[in-house]
Amino acid sequence: MNETELDKNQPKRSVGGELVLPALGVLFTLYYFTTIIDSPWTAQVSAFFIGAVLLSLSLVFFIKTGLAIRRGTARLSFDTLFSRLDISSGRLALLVITLSYAILIEWGGFTISTFIFLFLAMTVLNKGNSKGFIAALSAVLSLGGYLLFIFTFETHFPRGPFETFMELVLSNGS
């Protein structure tokens, strides 16, 4: 059996996902170049050097991957990045909840948003089990965060109805 036949008997490596970062790098580098094309040399010199190296490395990687697909040792699929596991493990749902948290925190403030986020995320990941425990844990953690960061350190965390209410209570409503 020659080497090519041996290669064909091996399971094909999924390489689609590996192309994502170099592709993003190429797109970003090309965009970056458009922003400095009319700039003074000081703004260009380092970026052109780094960008040129990144483009060259990515090109070599694309050619190498293309050749592997042509040889039959690799296939263009994205299952290393997206698979049914992402839905069954709750990862996709966690991403949606995290994105909603980042949006909600501007209006809901730290404490309420963190409570909702922790409760939803833990419930989804735990397949809906132990809701009572999760609710209590989420409450303790979000209130603990409020006490440590906002009350003790006076950090300028995003403020919402809860923080405003507590500020009024602590200043005796004045």
């Binding site: 970056y32 922003t35 400095i36 700039s39 003074p40 000081t42 703004a43 970026a47």
Partner: peptide, 11 residues
């Protein structure tokens, strides 16, 4: 950039 403060790649 540090010399002329030209914005680069800031989208």
């Amino acid at each position: 950039d540090v010399v002329y403060a030209t914005p680069r790649g800031t989208m």
